[in-house]
Simulated scan of single mutants.
Amino acid sequence: MTIFEHIIAGDLPASFVHRDADCVAFMDIHPITRGHVLVVPRQPAETIGELGPELRAHLWETAHRVGQAQQRALGSRAQHMLLNDGRAASQTVPHVHVHVIPRYGRDHARALVRIAWHITTLALPTRESPARRRRLDADAAAIAAALAAPRPG
C-alpha cells in the first residue's frame, strides 16, 4: 500500500479539504506554499492513464475547484497544478496525485527555493509536530469552507 492509500484508509493523519466517493484532497505535509493541496483518486493507480476518463475528469475538476477555494480562503492569486505522471517524471509516491499549489504573486524566487526544498524533504524523514498539524488543519478548514460555500456568479 502507498502512503496515500494509508491516508485514505484513515491509518495515517491528514488535514482533509475534500472527500467524495471517487477522490480526496488533503494538505501536503511539505507545502511549497501555504495551502498546498494534493488531490488523489481513491482508486490505486500509478499513472493518470490507468484511470477511466470520467475519473480523470473528476480529478481535474476537483483540483480546479480546490484552486478556486484557495483563492477565496487564503487570498492566493493563481495556482500551479502539477502532475508528475510516473517515476520517470519524478513521481515520488506511485499513486496518481495532482498538486494544487497556491501562488500569491511576487513569490517566484521563494517558490523555486521551496520546490527544491520540497524535493529534498521527500528523502528525509520528517517528524510531525502539533504546531505544524494545527497550521495544516486551519488552512484545510478554511479551504474546505470555501469549497462548501455557494460560488459567486
Rank of each mutant, 00 (worst) to 15 (best):
E61G: 09
T126S: 13
L12G: 08
Q43M: 13
R106D: 02
H6K: 15
L12A: 11
L136Y: 13
V37R: 04
Q68E: 15
L82C: 07
A63G: 15
T2Y: 00
A88E: 08
S129I: 11
G35V: 08
A145T: 09
A9I: 10
I32N: 04
I8F: 04
W117I: 03
L122T: 12
R72T: 05
I101K: 06
A144W: 07
P94G: 12
R114G: 00
A149I: 13
P44Y: 06
V39M: 05
L59T: 00
G105V: 01
A144H: 03
H80T: 14
R134T: 02
I8M: 07
P53N: 03
F26Q: 04
D137C: 04
L112T: 00
Q68C: 10
L12K: 08
S90P: 02
A57E: 08
S15L: 03
G49W: 08
A146T: 12
A149H: 03
R72I: 06
P41E: 02
R19G: 00
A146D: 00
A149P: 13
S15F: 06
H118V: 01
D20M: 12
G153E: 11
R132H: 15
R34Y: 05
A138F: 05
R65Y: 08
G153M: 06
A9N: 09
H30P: 04
S15R: 06
M81K: 11
R56W: 02
S76Y: 04
P41R: 12
T62A: 03
G86A: 08
A131G: 09
T47Y: 03
I48H: 05
E61D: 13
P130W: 11
S76V: 10
Q43H: 13
T92W: 12
R114P: 00
D28A: 07
S76Q: 01
T126K: 14
L122I: 06
D137H: 08
W117L: 06
A21P: 03
R127K: 15
F16R: 08
F4D: 03
L51K: 10
L147T: 01
P53E: 06
H58I: 11
D20P: 10
L82R: 07
L136K: 06
V17F: 02
S76I: 03
E128Q: 14
H80W: 13
A116I: 14
M27C: 10
I29F: 07
G49D: 11
G75D: 08
R132C: 09
A146F: 02
P41T: 11
R19I: 09
V98K: 07
T92C: 08
F16K: 11
M1T: 10
A148K: 11
A21H: 03
D20A: 04
H36W: 01
L38D: 02
A78K: 14
S129C: 08
D20N: 14
H36L: 06
H58S: 09
R132E: 15
D20Q: 09
D139H: 10
Y104D: 02
Q79L: 10
P150Y: 05
V96Y: 08
A88Q: 07
R42V: 14
R127Q: 13
A141S: 11
S76T: 13
D28N: 13
A45C: 12
R87L: 05
Q43A: 15
A144R: 14
P13C: 06
R56P: 01
A69T: 07
M1V: 11
L83P: 01
